[in-house]
Design a protein around this nucleic acid. Structure first.
Lengths: 223, 223
DNA sequence: AAAAATATGTCAATTAAATGTAAAATATAG
DNA sequence: CTATATTTTACATTTAATTGACATATTTTT
C-alpha cells in the first residue's frame, strides 16, 4: 500500500485529503506540524509527502530543505499544497526541491492524478530495510548484511530470518513458521525448520545466537 | 545540452518558450504540429516534451498516447501546456501519462522551474551512457562495448543488459524482467529469460559472470 | 538430585528443485 | 526466401531442501 505523509495544520483539509486518498487505497499518515512529520519519516518509510507551507513551528520550506539535504530521504517525492500562490512562491517551492506545487483551493481529483503521475515515474523502489542490532535485510534486493558484511542466504533461510526479525521477541511455533515460509499446503516435516534455523545461525556467525529456541514451542528473535 | 521538444501551433507562444528556454541554456526544437514532432522524436532523442493539446492534424492527446505506448519513448517526460483548463481536462492529461499540466496563460518562469524539477528527478535522462566496470552502453546509439571492444547484441539482450545495469546490485524477478523487457501483455514462458541471460553472458565473455542468479528469485548485476 | 523422557542441534546422505545451455522449432525482418 | 532473432524443449548441471541418525540439551518424573 502506498504511504502518503500529510503535513497540514488545517484539520478540515487533512480530513478531506485523508478521506479521499483512503478511497483510492492510499494509506495516509497525517500531522498538523512538520516536526512530528520529520520524526515519523525517520521511523517509517513513506512513498510521497504532501506538504503545507504555512505551519506552526518548523516551517514547510525548512522541512523541505531538511528532507532534501538528507541522503536517506532525498528521493521521496514532495508535493506542496499551499495558499501561497504567487509566481515567486511556486518557483521557490520547486527550486527548493518540491516535485509539484498545488495552490489552495485545490481539486482533490487533480491532487490524486498528480500523485499517480509522480509515482508512475518513480516506482516506489525505495528499499525497505529491516535493520536491527547489526543485522540488516534489504527486502527489495534480498541482500542481508551482518555488521556491514554481506552474507549469502538461501531462499528459505532468508524468509525465515525475515519472519523472525519482522516481529522481534515474538515466539513462533514451528507450524506457524512452516505455514509462513513453506506455505499452507506443504507437508514438510516439522523438524526441517530446526535444520534451517541451524544453518541460519551458522551463517550469521556470532550474531546467530539471537535466535533462541523456546522449548516445546518454537523459536523467537531475542534481539 | 538539454533538448526540449516543443509542439505548439501558436507562433507567439513557441517563440516565447524558445526565447526564454534558450536563455536558460536549453536547446528547443519546435513544431507547429504533432506529426512532425513524432517524426523528430524518431530521429533524435529529446529530454523533455512540451505539448499543446489543441492542434491541427494529429491531436495532442493522440500524440501523448502514441508516445506513451512506445517503449522507446515512454520514459520521456511530457508537460502539457493547454488552454483546456477544466478539472477533467487536467485529470485526463495526467492519467494519459503527462508528467505535469500547465494551463494557459502560464508563467514562463514557473514552466522553467517545473522543467528543472522534472529533470532533477530523472537524472538518467541526462546521462545517456551507462558505464560500469568495463561494460558500457550508449543508449543513444544502442552500442555496447566490453573493454572498448564493441559487441553485437540482439534487442532483447540489449534491453536486458540495460535493465540490469541501470540498477546494479538490485535483484529483479523473472517476471519483473519479462514486464520490463517483453511488456506487460506478453505471455512468454518465464524461462525464456534464462536463455537470454545465458546468451548475454556468453557474448560478454569473461565479464559475463557479473550476472548472478539469485535462486528462487531471479537475477542481478553484481558489479 | 538422578534417571528417564522428551526436545533441540547438527552433520551427512538423499531427494527434490532450480538453473545452465545446446539445439530444435517458430517467428520476424529484410 | 533467407537470414536472424526469439522461444521452446530437453537434458545436464548445480544448488537447495529434506530427512534420518545421533549428539547434546532440557524438562519431567521419581
Amino acid at each position: 500500500m502506498i504511504k502518503v505523509l500529510v503535513i497540514e495544520d488545517h484539520e478540515e483539509i487533512r480530513d478531506l485529503i485523508s478521506y479521499n486518498l483512503g478511497k483510492e487505497n492510499f494509506e495516509t499518515i497525517c500531522f498538523d506540524n512538520a516536526n512530528e512529520g520529520l520524526i515519523h519519516l525517520e521511523n517509517d518509510d513513506v512513498d510521497i509527502i504532501l506538504l503545507d507551507l504555512m505551519l506552526p513551528g518548523l516551517k514547510g520550506m525548512q522541512f523541505l530543505q531538511i528532507v532534501r539535504n538528507n541522503k536517506k530521504f532525498s528521493g521521496v517525492p514532495i508535493i506542496i499544497i499551499s495558499a501561497k500562490n504567487t509566481e515567486q512562491d511556486i518557483i521557490n517551492g520547486l527550486e527548493m526541491g518540491a516535485d509539484d506545487y498545488l495552490t489552495k483551493p485545490f481539486s482533490i481529483k487533480i491532487l490524486i492524478a498528480k500523485i499517480n503521475a509522480i509515482l508512475r515515474r518513480n516506482p516506489a523502489i525505495k528499499s525497505k530495510i529491516i535493520s536491527i542490532n547489526g543485522i540488516s535485510i534489504d527486502t527489495n534486493n534480498y541482500v542481508v548484511t551482518v555488521d556491514g558484511e554481506e552474507i549469502s542466504l538461501t531462499n528459505k533461510e532468508y524468509e525465515l530470518l525475515q519472519m523472525l526479525l519482522k516481529h522481534p521477541k515474538r515466539v513462533f511455533t514451528r507450524n506457524q513458521i512452516l505455514n509462513a515460509v513453506w506455505g499452507y499446503e506443504s507437508d514438510v516435516y516439522t523438524r526441517t525448520v530446526d535444520t534451517h534455523v541451524s544453518s541460519l545461525r551458522k551463517k550469521l556467525g556470532e550474531k546467530g545466537s539471537f535466535i533462541k529456541s523456546v522449548p516445546k514451542i518454537g523459536y523467537r528473535a531475542d534481539i
